[in-house]
Design a protein around this nucleic acid. Structure first.
Lengths: 116, 116
DNA sequence: TTGATGCGCAACCAAAGGTTGCATATGGCA
DNA sequence: TGCCATATGCAACCTTTGGTTGCGCATCAA
């Protein structure tokens, strides 16, 4: 059933650097490739590429401001991403519960038969 | 703040093929690289590599059975992964709510001042 | 025993993430 | 105005990762 998910959106937030970038932008407001790279273990160019990826899937928007380019999180799109995380989590959680319930039922059954 | 997450675990479930594999294993019980590859758009060898990745982070376990190798989901580890999805989702969700609250406060304030 | 099937290993390819180097544009200041 | 510092973008290059094909080995079954 594979929980219909936007793979592009998911893989955008699948990268740990990109996740941290979103965290930084959420916590500190709009930022530039340079300002973000100062808080990350990679170069400005790498950050720039990640920003391009995030921009492409609409998780952030970049706006030129003089010689800088300010990026900020698109809240609606991030909310959608959060919803997908929740959806996949809920699906797996439900399956795990079901498996556990079945396992317990089998266990109970086994004990009953042993008791005969 | 970056919501301490096990990057290996996360990136293991970050891949769409691997997520589908977990879904298949959860839905259909234990499976082999061959059986999974029949339900996926990639070759057995690719599936085999993905299984190795999932095995390495402990999300699945493989047990030899004759000439086959049966893999099944490690429920405890998957539960942990689900918890991490939920944690990141909750963090972002909280930040989004806070931003929205602040934005609304500013908006209210602006309207008040205009009313003066 | 012999053929079919399931796996693992190796070689090879393309895309993604990362780095360095360089050219360009813009802002600030003497 | 003119010069220097700084923020960006672009290109070349490297490594890792996901994918493929080909091949050899083990195992099950007729």
């Amino acid at each position: 059933m594979s929980t219909a998910v936007d793979d592009d959106l998911w893989s955008a937030i699948g990268d740990p650097i990109r996740r941290t970038m979103i965290d930084l932008l959420l916590a500190g407001g709009p930022g530039t490739a340079t300002s973000l790279s100062e808080q990350l273990p990679v170069t400005r160019q790498a950050v720039s590429k990640h920003l391009a990826v995030l921009d492409r899937v609409g998780l952030v928007h970049g706006a030129p401001a003089g010689r800088e380019r300010h990026f900020q999180v698109d809240e609606a799109q991030l909310a959608r991403a959060v919803a997908q995380l929740a959806a996949v989590g809920a699906t797996w959680d439900a399956r795990l519960r079901r498996i556990k319930r079945i396992a317990e039922a089998i266990e109970r059954n086994r004990n009953n038969n042993q008791g005969d």
